[in-house]
């Protein structure tokens, strides 16, 4: 087998072994699912309290009815989980290369089996493996916990089915797909910061700081924000399509879907990923390790 490929595989196996034994990697996978489970419980408890109050007052309205539909909560769980996962992945990506350089562990990889570029690619792939595991766990947890606390069903008002379950599922699928597309670019951003930074602490603080700053300032960029991968990610100041899906599956008819936004969501993150990756691969060649 080609030496470059062998080096990449060795570096990847090494990354996965380290991930298996380190807390940071486990947190990336488990924390979003744990966090949304807790969120569901808190929401359910507060809803139960509100329902008891309304029952005592003899009230009951459409909002209360749709609040019992699990689809809305399922999407909220995905949205919160992906927001947290995005930040965790950026932090983990920023930590990945820089901490190995700080500890000197990177040197053994470079001297014995892999080129610098192979190591960066292995880190990127290993972070995607973590992301994939975290997403699968997040979807499963969100579905199971929301399904246990509420009931999945179509949106019905006065006996009329506003939105069928098939339509809801199709919207959730699209929303999830669009929310996941920018994730590789976010990981690549973390890796780039990791390669550039002088220490692991600096890398993590810078990557998280820049991600949060982008989140805050994207609203001020107007049209230009559409050319930023971060605009399409579920985040604290969420503009992603998943946020619209959350309202759609609750039966709100005032959601305006911007087709251009959806198109840009599908295409903008790829060149961003490519640019960030190429920059990382170029810079890593020149860094002292």
């Amino acid at each position: 087998m080609n030496l470059a490929v062998t080096g990449f595989i060795k570096a990847l196996r090494s990354e996965l072994l380290v991930a298996r034994y380190t807390l940071g990697a486990w947190l990336v996978v488990l924390l979003p699912a744990l966090f949304i489970s807790l969120q569901f419980l808190v929401v359910r408890i507060s809803e139960t309290g509100a329902a008891a109050r309304d029952s005592l007052l003899g009230q009951g309205d459409f909002d209360a009815m749709i609040a019992n539909n699990a689809y809305g909560h399922f999407v909220d769980g995905l949205s919160t989980g992906l927001t947290l996962l995005g930040l965790l992945l950026v932090a983990q990506a920023a930590y990945s290369f820089s901490t190995d350089r700080d500890s000197g562990a990177l040197r053994h990889l470079l001297i014995r089996c892999s080129s610098r570029r192979a190591v960066v690619l292995a880190k990127l792939v290993h972070l995607h493996v973590l992301a994939l595991l975290a997403i699968l766990l997040l979807i499963a947890t969100s579905y199971l916990v929301s399904g246990n606390l509420w009931e999945f069903g179509p949106i019905v008002e006065d006996g009329f089915e506003l939105i069928s379950e098939e339509e809801i599922a199709a919207e959730i699928k699209l929303g999830l797909q669009l929310a996941l597309i920018p994730l590789p670019a976010a990981i690549a951003f973390g890796v780039l910061v990791s390669v550039v930074a002088n220490s692991a602490t600096q890398a993590v603080v810078s990557a998280l700081g820049l991600s949060l700053a982008l989140d805050v300032f994207k609203g001020m960029l107007g049209e230009y924000a559409y050319y930023l991968y971060a605009t399409f990610q579920p985040s604290l100041l969420d503009q992603s399509y998943l946020q619209d899906v959350s309202r759609l599956v609750r039966g709100y008819s005032d959601v305006l879907v911007d087709e251009r936004f959806l198109q840009l969501n599908q295409w903008v993150p790829f060149p961003a990923l490519l640019l960030l990756l190429v920059a990382s691969l170029l810079i890593v060649q020149k860094r002292k390790v």
Partner: peptide, 12 residues
């Protein structure tokens, strides 16, 4: 292979 002044192993 090389052995460095600092231990250069993953501390975790």
């Amino acid at each position: 292979v090389a052995i460095f002044d600092s231990p250069s192993l993953n501390p975790n």
